[in-house]
Amino acid sequence: MRTVNFLIAVVAGLIVLLGYFFPGLELAVIRKPLLDWAVTLSGVAGLVAILNLVFHVHWKRVHDNHPRKLYSAVLILAFLLTVAAGVFLDPASAGFQKLVTRVQVPIESSLMAVLAITLVFASLKILQRHRNWMGFLFFLSVVFFLVLNSGVLAFTAEIPILRDLLSAFHQVPVAGARGMLLGIALGSLVTGIRILTGSEKPYNG
C-alpha cells in the first residue's frame, strides 16, 4: 500500500510540475482533474476534521463525564447552532454575517489585545531571564524599532545625515525578511524534491 501511495504522489507531483515547465504539452488534460480532486479532497478533509473534533473528542468528554465537559458541551451547542444558521440562512444573509462579525471578531480581537499586554509584560523581564549580551542587544532592538516604526522620528526627514541613517535602519528588518524568504524558498524547494523522490512521505501519516 505504501508503494501505491508513493507512486500516486510522485506521478501526480511530476505531472503538475511538468505542467509548469512545459505548458505546451497536453498535461492540462490530466492536471486539471488532479487539481479538482485535490480541492474536493481538502474540503472533505476539513469536514472530517471538524466532525472528528466535535463528535469524537468533545462528545466523548461529555459522555465520559470529563472535568471540562461543560466547555465541550458549549462547543457542541455552538457548532450545531452555527450549522443550523448556515443551513437555514444562506451565506449572504445579514444575520449569518453578523453572527461572524459580532461574535468571532470581538473574541479574537480581545485575544490579540491580551497578547499585546502579555508581550509587553514579558519584555519587561527580558533582561532578568537573559542577562547576557544577546539579551541586551535584543532589548535595545525592541525599544529602538518600536520607536522608529511609531513615526515619532518623522522630524529627521529635515536632517540629511540622520534621515539617511534612519532610512538604513528601516532596511534592517527588510534584510532579515529577505533572508527568511530565501530560507523558506530553499526549504520549499528541498521539501518538494524530497517528496518527488520519495525521501519524504508525508502522505503515510
Binding site: L124, K125, I126, L127, V142, L146
Partner: peptide
C-alpha cells in the same frame, strides 16, 4: 502611535529597573 510609544517606554523602564536591581 501613542500605544506603541507607551509600550516602548514600559519595556525600557522595565529593563533599566532590572539592570539596576541585578
Amino acid at each position: 502611535q501613542l500605544a506603541v510609544l507607551t509600550a516602548a517606554l514600559l519595556i525600557f523602564l522595565g529593563g533599566v529597573v532590572t539592570l539596576i536591581n541585578t
